Simulated assay, not measured.
Amino acid sequence: MKKEDKVSTREKILHIATALFHKQGYNATGINQVIAEAKVAKASLYYHFPTKDDLCIAYLKERHRKWEQDFRAFLRDKPNKVIAAFDAIIDDNLKNDFRGCSFLNMLSETPPQKTKIFEALQYHKLELQKFFASELEDSELAYQVYSLFENAIMESQLFRSQAPVLRLQKIVVSLLDKHQG
């Protein structure tokens, strides 16, 4: 098998797993479904991903890469990236039918003893915290805004509404105004 074929097969498997894990969740997605939808042999899947956890970690890494790329692109021309981050949630809710955060969804399905998966989940959230810290000079304020951002994602998913995002965005505006004044 040529190297290009291996990369192509790996990417195909990862693409299908990403779509299924994002849509159905990790536990509801079986390896046999991934194999069938990717149209690959079981040996090919296990060659690239020896365990379902390995596939999950690759999914989380790819999801983080794609999320960060889309998030940064959304914010690129926005004058206030902190406030615009909440608009990014609204945009994502419209595109993904209030599916919420893939990382928080995965967290709810993952027992703590799966440390490598937990590390991938934590990495994403730590990078998000770094984003807010880089935009705001006050680390405590950055963490408060990060926490409100996370809450906006969860509440909008739970209630299938943009109202929590808008409400929490107003709170952030107020916090920023107080911090500047």
Rank of each mutant, 00 (worst) to 15 (best):
N27R: 07
A58F: 01
K52F: 02
Y47T: 15
K39N: 08
R10D: 12
L60A: 00
E68Y: 10
Q69G: 08
H22C: 09
K39C: 07
I83Y: 02
F21W: 01
I57L: 01
H64F: 08
A84G: 06
A41N: 12
S44H: 06
A38N: 13
H48C: 10
D70P: 05
A84W: 05
K52L: 03
K78D: 10
H64D: 11
A36K: 04
A19C: 10
R65M: 08
K52A: 01
W67R: 00
L55S: 05
I35K: 03
Q33N: 07
F21L: 03
A41L: 11
K52I: 01
K42V: 14
K42P: 12
K12Y: 05
A58Y: 03
K39A: 09
D77L: 09
D70A: 09
I83K: 08
Q33H: 08
A43M: 12
Q33T: 15
Y47D: 15
I31N: 02
V34K: 04
D77Y: 05
K12N: 15
L14D: 13
D53W: 04
I35G: 04
N80M: 11
K39E: 12
N27W: 00
T18I: 09
V34P: 02
Q24N: 15
Y46P: 10
K81N: 12
T9R: 13
A84R: 06
K23S: 09
E62F: 00
Y26H: 10
A17C: 04
E62L: 05
F71V: 06
Y47G: 14
L45F: 11
E68T: 06
A73P: 05
H15P: 02
D77K: 08
P79N: 15
